[in-house]
């Protein structure tokens, strides 16, 4: 069964329709990349999947492991294994990273019928997973995202993903704001998490990321719809020829 099945999804905010009939299937073990111009609806898609209710779904359906995803509350989706690495992570002043993560990890464990993680085990796990993305250990002692640099925030998102071990990871422009070394480290972290029963949707503007995180499928999202899908070489074509060319040649097969 597919992990994620999006069929003819339409979503609007206020009176603006942003997603206009989006269809996408993601199978276990797959890595999907979504590229597309600014304002085309990439973050909107991520937000709808995570359950932000400002966006109203007007048509279509989304199945997650065969269940109606849109019927679940945002926190339930998270506990069921949907993880969103935010394009703009939010600061929670005074809320310690460790407390926050402990709440998060144990909420998910409880949902799965597992006993809460003890303090020692939790600290050990946090240390290991932080090392995975080379997160400065002192950041774990601070408040969630408060005063973090842009790059630190992005790294922190991947650290949290590693802690929560989701089934579906959605990464919204995790690469923007990262320096070259950080990009490699974060990509390694994501690759480390790839497995047969887990899938990822990676939103990016840059082909460069896809050198490190090699996608199975690349989709081009323009004006609320996926206009073209292809292998990893589609990203190279895009880089070379731009979105206008894609729009015009949407129906042709991809050749490099």
């Amino acid at each position: 069964m597919a992990i994620l099945e999006i069929k003819n999804l339409h979503a609007k905010i206020e009176d603006n329709e942003i997603l206009k009939g989006l269809t996408l299937t993601v199978n276990p073990g797959e890595m999907h990349a979504i590229m597309g111009p600014n304002g085309s609806g990439k973050s909107t898609l991520a937000a709808v999947l995570a359950g932000r209710e400002e966006f109203e779904v007007t048509e279509g359906e989304v199945l997650y492991n065969g269940r109606d995803l849109l019927d679940m509350a945002p926190d339930e989706r998270a506990r069921e294994g949907v993880f969103l690495a935010f394009q703009y992570p939010v600061e929670l002043p005074g809320v310690s990273m460790m407390n926050f993560l402990k709440e998060a990890v144990n909420a998910t464990r409880e949902h799965r019928g597992e006993a809460p993680l003890g303090a020692m085990d939790f600290i050990k796990m946090a240390r290991e997973r932080a090392a995975l993305v080379n997160l400065d250990p002192s950041l774990k002692q601070r408040s969630v995202n408060e005063g973090f640099s842009g790059g630190e925030k992005k790294r922190n998102e991947i650290f949290q993903m590693a802690m929560l071990e989701p089934r579906l990871g959605i990464l919204d422009e995790t690469d923007s704001g990262l320096d070259i070394d950080a990009l490699r480290v974060v990509a390694d972290g994501v690759n480390h998490m790839r497995s047969d029963d887990r899938a990822f949707v990676v939103i990016t503007h840059y082909q460069r990321l896809l050198n490190y995180i090699v996608p199975d499928v690349v989709h081009v999202l323009v004006d609320g719809k996926i206009v073209k899908s292809g292998g990893k070489e589609l990203a190279l074509v895009l880089e070379e020829k731009g979105y206008d060319w894609i729009k015009e040649h949407a129906d042709e097969p991809v050749t490099v």
Binding site: D75, R79, V90, V95, F100, E103, A104, A107, T108
Partner: peptide
């Protein structure tokens, strides 16, 4: 802020407690 907590699996009430405690 509440949505961010929700997205990590933390329910609304617990999210508000965390934020207020912070």
């Amino acid at each position: 802020q509440i949505f961010y907590c929700n997205q990590r699996g933390i329910g609304e009430e617990q999210a508000i407690k965390l934020i207020v405690n912070g």
